[in-house]
Amino acid sequence: MNSEVEEKFFGHNQETIIQPTRGWRFLNWRELWAYRELLWVLTARDVKVRYKQTVLGAGWAILRPFITMLIFSVVFGKLANMPSDGFPYPVFVYAALLPWTFFTAAISTSGGSLIGSSQLVSKVYFPRLIIPLSSVGAGLIDLLISTVILLCMMLYYDVGWTTSLFAAPLLLLFVIFAALGVGTLLSALTVKYRDFTHITPFLVQIWLYVTPVIFPVTLVPEQWQWVLYLNPMTGLVEGFRSAFLGKPFDILGLGISFSIALAIFFIGVAYFEKVERRFADII
């Protein structure tokens, strides 16, 4: 199937028809698959460039969430005495910071990614979705590195290490869906309305307060918890805690968050595809 797809998009006997396109259409998966090498190359570029000419290099991937964890532990864990479902606060907050840092980094970088690559967009053709995709992909490396720290912390505090850990990849998949949805939506909107370069940091900040990163869901009265789960990151962040710390899963909450993450993904990608063909004209 690979060679067949490649022949269709890169072969010497292909026939391309260029004509006006209108209305909504969803992603051309086959085309995206044919361009996977470009996705890989651009992701590798983002990763390589990120820590060039820094003294600590990839150490920043460890330091950033670690320092955030320390600050949160002192401010919220010690000073504010935030409840943490019975877990040591540092490991409780770090398990949530893991998907959260990935998510915010992904939506901020992919939000500005199209404008940052305007040179590419106005000079060559390729599925534009690859640009925000590669921004999200580049963040995955950081996530994997900082996961190692969490595993060490779990050893140190002697929590977790249950079979729930096997749920982590599935949870990660949905975090990626949510990040891609929001990221592509923001990147497409930023092309047309530069206001979003100012809105995105704001959005990230507000989003933190409606996501149980520094506080547990149990802080909210039980009959209102479902509202919190409308934010897909709630279920995913709580899910990460369950997976790594061995807390029981909230299946209903997870279900709501999963469906909303998927919905956001489809809306984001569909909107992106709708406006994609005009990018070169307005960027």
């Binding site: 391309t16 028809i17 260029i18 004509q19 006006p20 967009v121 106005s122 053709y125 063909r277």
Partner: peptide
Amino acid sequence: ITAPTRGRIVV
């Protein structure tokens, strides 16, 4: 890079 408003091209 950009789509035509009308017409078509076969390549």
